[in-house]
Amino acid sequence: MKFVLSEVNLWYNDFQALQNVSMDIKANEVTAFIGPSGCGKSTLIKSLNRMNDLIEGCKITGFIQLDGEDVYGSMDVNLLRKRVGMVFQKPNPFPMSVYDNIAFGPRTHGIKNKRELDEIVEKSLHDAAIWDEVKDRLKKSALGLSGGQQQRLCIARALSVSPDVLLMDEPTSALDPISTGKIEDLVMELKKNYTVIIVTHNMQQATRISDKTAFFLLGEVIEFGDTDQIFSMPRDKRCEDYITGRFG
């Protein structure tokens, strides 16, 4: 097990956004979070690398363990975020060169050697399937890339600190179908080496790339299991309605 969650409750001030969430997330699998808007998918994903710490008034109870270690215990939060990388909904490259975007992470964690950095940059960009498109413009601003390229750059940036887990919050919702396809292929490739958790509103995407699926509703995990099973014969009526588009 990569992540073990038990009885996770989360409040934004008085509003309870997660209720008794328990689930086990296996290593080297792709887990998809699906559910209607506002049901707590982003909230849960941000709990896994403690990005919720940035939100004032956010309170969490229960246990989240990464490789058996309590995420909210004595763990150094910066090292946690090194191990659990994140890709955001909107591509957010830093307004600096492609190279510096990727090198930022390793530099943060103390790597200064130029040759070592060069290697990491090349490998990360390779792994994010964007090396060929940017190898001649490493020193140019990352803002000049297309939206799809920017998102793959952000994936490369997340890979640069060699995480175990990759959290992706609707990583393709801002992209065209071709870029989306590239990123889906990439995710399937990445799961060999990483554990991937992905939030998506796109049912086809979930069936195409995920091994496990969790269906959320109003802060609760209603159903969690093999993607094949959830999409072919969901046990819960509400889950079925959502998947078949009859929801709401």
Partner: peptide
């Protein structure tokens, strides 16, 4: 944009590093 700050923090950068190395240059 706050996303830039969050992007840095999500890589394991401390608050100070994110502010000095990403927010300020931006």
């Amino acid at each position: 944009p706050q996303e830039l700050y969050e992007g840095a923090v999500a890589l394991g950068a401390s608050h100070e590093r994110a502010v000095f190395k990403v927010v300020l240059p931006s």
